[in-house]
């Protein structure tokens, strides 16, 4: 059964309430917007990538607590890392959130392990991974990403009435 208790724990609620690095950056080197068309959530990610390291990162948008906390914690984890380190962390986070790897098998995941429980909630995985998809899009000069795009690991329509 899904592990909600571990999902809505203090650290996630705190980042939702007081998101870190919230806003935009005037002249980012990399920028992308991510959408989850199923729930209307959208976030933008701005990055300033220096010669070696990510000097600054910010996000902004309308989303649920899981998405906002994921974005906030992503920015704190990514700031100061090299692009290669950031790319590795993106891969680890996506693998953990989609249940392909346990958080123990992700050496760089650190405090982001609080999102491991989301893999038990298929309808909420997209919320957690949207910021990471968007960051990946920014690095790869994809201006707009969507949780419904073909390359989305969770690509699966949620229908209904």
């Amino acid at each position: 059964m899904a592990n909600y208790k571990s999902l809505y724990q203090e650290v996630i609620l705190d980042h939702n309430k007081k998101p870190r690095n919230y806003g935009t950056i005037e002249s980012p080197s990399h920028h992308a917007v991510g959408h989850n068309p199923l729930c209307g959530d959208h976030i933008s990610v701005d990055v300033v990538l220096g010669d070696e390291r990510i000097n600054n990162i910010a996000f902004q948008g309308e989303s649920c607590a899981i998405c906002k906390a994921s974005a906030s914690m992503m920015t704190t984890a990514i700031k100061g890392k090299t692009r290669a380190e950031a790319e590795t962390l993106i891969q680890e986070f996506l693998a953990m959130a989609t249940g392909k790897l346990s958080h123990d098998a992700c050496p760089n995941i650190g405090r982001l392990a609080v999102f491991a429980g989301v893999s038990d909630l298929p309808t909420r995985v997209k919320c957690a991974i949207l910021p990471w998809h968007t960051l990946s899009g920014a690095f790869n000069a994809v201006a707009t990403t969507s949780t419904e795009s073909e390359d989305d690991p969770m690509h699966a329509p949620i229908g209904d009435a």
Binding site: A2, Y4, K5, L7, Y8, C39, D41, S63, C64, A65, I66, L121, T123, R124, C127
Partner: peptide, 13 residues
């Protein structure tokens, strides 16, 4: 202050 998706997940709990 609470997104509907968070409400849905928490009510399901």
């Amino acid at each position: 202050g609470v997104h509907p998706h968070d409400i849905g997940t928490l009510l399901n709990q």
